[in-house]
Design a protein around this nucleic acid. Structure first.
Lengths: 332, 332
DNA sequence: TTGTAAGCGTTATCAT
DNA sequence: ATGATAACGCTTACAA
């Protein structure tokens, strides 16, 4: 591959001049023309590795998410991508698979590659990885989940509000024994969604009943098992609020297997949009997060953080919306 | 951030020795110990940018796919990721959005960043981008789609066979007027799936009827429009084979809107697995590709290509499987 | 086994 | 405005 020296030689100028043409310094139009021609003729592309070493910065972001296959994250990644490419960054997608060790590996790579910044949806409730980024001076933005005792920008959905409207909706539909399947207690999202559920019940003058709550793992089999356990429990629920999309699938599978009708036997509201929520019969009521928007906002926060490393951390909370569909509506 | 010189100074050895410790050269255990301690104390991480410049190779792959939100690709990406990280590579995910210009941009980035290799699911039927990678000596593996006149490794599903078994199944179920919604004629996948459809009809002793074939765009609205056009056409189909997952959604939406029952009025088989195929009523019969496996195989091909740039290009075809569900089965 | 020094391809400083 | 050259942080001959 051609280097800047090859271009300089062909254009009969110095490498400094070539560099100026490439980076917009002031140079005589005649020389500039010669350089441009030589660049084209040699199909020269500046070596970004060398440029990065010299300038001490790269155009790469690491986006570390816990599950590439979850539509929630793919949508978010698109939001990030769009901002990134508009700002001249490329996105390195890292799939931590809810595995703390993998997450640590990717953080190491981001640091070793001297990436310009990191967007992280933590797979761990511990702050260690974020702190090692922060102490290395690498800009970080947290997305989806927040971490105790971490000073970093964060972009979150309004989980408590979302869970609140979902539960309130079930109350209003006349369901009596409303259960909740949430995620691991250590995660802010799981805790906040549970707390919104509790708040809505309290507001309706009902006592919280812990035998109607299950802590699962945010995955499909976890949701399935939690629903089974609820159905086999002392107090059989007539409705359930499920705290994420994957677990909602598990819950629905369980209900199908048991030949229980939705919403006749059990009403269902799920957190997170499902791409096929409208296609399933019954259609599924969901609490939608603005996922693409979350990605965009996080990316914009990262851009700001890179430009101004010492600004106060920001915490952006985005509203959620209830999409009422068939699974939660008592027709008759 | 600490450099190799800081480590050398602290360990009281030369930078060469530090480098040897880091890269597994032979060095006196006593010195090695001092180096290891200094590395830990300084929290030293080798600068991969500098290493890349010096060694003239990076540990980055570009994976350029046409739609991050299509579950087909996210599954594939996981297969790629798993191999990549086992081999010490990181994956830069690029979403070309079926846009030829975006694809070109990402190819440029891959070249400029001197990435170790590229896995590409082409968003264009033209060979230009692959050729510019090839002429720059950048290892490329094509996945999902193949391109005319391109000498590169390719990993594909057996599209013709998949379409064949799908169509044959519809014939066996007693459907009379079996339509086909395929993708743009220029894409190998669309052509091969159409050809499998034709072959199965011929084999069943039926004449191909072009009024039952539609070329759409592999997207949901395209599938929807194609189904409408079929229903409004001269010969109303009683079954349809749809050549990808997104278009299958469009087709199903159309049938729902028209209040046609599946499979009573129209039988449906879709190409590509749908994560919710089991959850919809009726459940959807699909031709599944081994998507994760395709990613793995493509990644392994890239590893080989990087090690041996001059080997003959390989073409791997992976089998598909028919998952018979309710949408194609005539019960009574 | 260890150290010295050249060089990877840029950009930026400093003369001119 | 232009050019010579040092420097970015590493690996790797080559010498000792």
């Amino acid at each position: 591959m051609a280097t800047i020296y090859d271009v300089a030689r062909r254009a009969e100028v110095s490498v400094a001049t070539v560099s100026r043409v490439l980076n917009g310094g002031s140079v005589d139009p005649v020389l500039a023309e010669r350089v441009t021609k030589a660049v084209a003729a040699l199909r020269y592309r500046p070596n970004l590795v060398a440029r990065s070493l010299r300038t001490q910065r790269t155009r790469l972001w690491a986006v570390i998410i816990s599950d590439v296959r979850n539509p929630f994250f793919t949508d978010m990644v698109r939001g990030i991508e769009d901002v990134a490419s508009a700002e001249g960054y490329s996105v390195v997608l890292c799939n931590s698979d809810e595995d703390e060790a993998k997450e640590a590996d990717y953080v190491d790579v981001a640091l070793a590659e001297r990436m310009a910044g990191v967007i992280l949806s933590p797979s761990s409730y511990r702050a260690a990885h974020v702190n090692s980024l922060a102490s290395a001076g690498c800009p970080v933005v947290l997305v989806d989940r927040e971490l105790d005792g971490v000073r970093a920008d964060a972009v979150l959905a309004d989980n408590e509000q979302g869970a609140h409207i979902a539960t309130k909706h079930l109350v209003e539909q006349g369901f009596e024994r409303i259960a909740c399947v949430t995620g691991p207690r250590e995660y802010s999202t799981a805790a906040q969604r549970l707390s919104g559920y509790h708040a809505a019940l309290t507001e309706a003058g009902r006592d919280a009943d812990e035998s109607l709550v299950r802590f699962a793992d945010f995955r499909e089999p976890g949701g399935h098992a939690a629903m089974q356990s609820l159905l086999d429990g002392p107090k059989r629920p007539d409705a359930v609020f499920v705290a994420n999309n994957l677990m909602t699938i598990g819950v629905l599978r369980c209900l199908t297997e048991r030949r229980l009708s939705v919403p006749g036997d059990v009403g269902v509201v799920g957190f997170d949009e499902l791409p096929w929520a409208e296609l399933v019969r019954p259609t599924i009521t969901t609490v939608g997060q603005p996922t693409y928007e979350e990605g965009r906002v996080a990316a914009e926060a990262l851009v700001r953080r890179i430009k101004n490393p010492n600004a106060e951390p920001t915490r952006t909370v985005l509203p959620t919306h209830l999409h009422v569909r068939e699974s939660s509506v008592r027709g008759r």
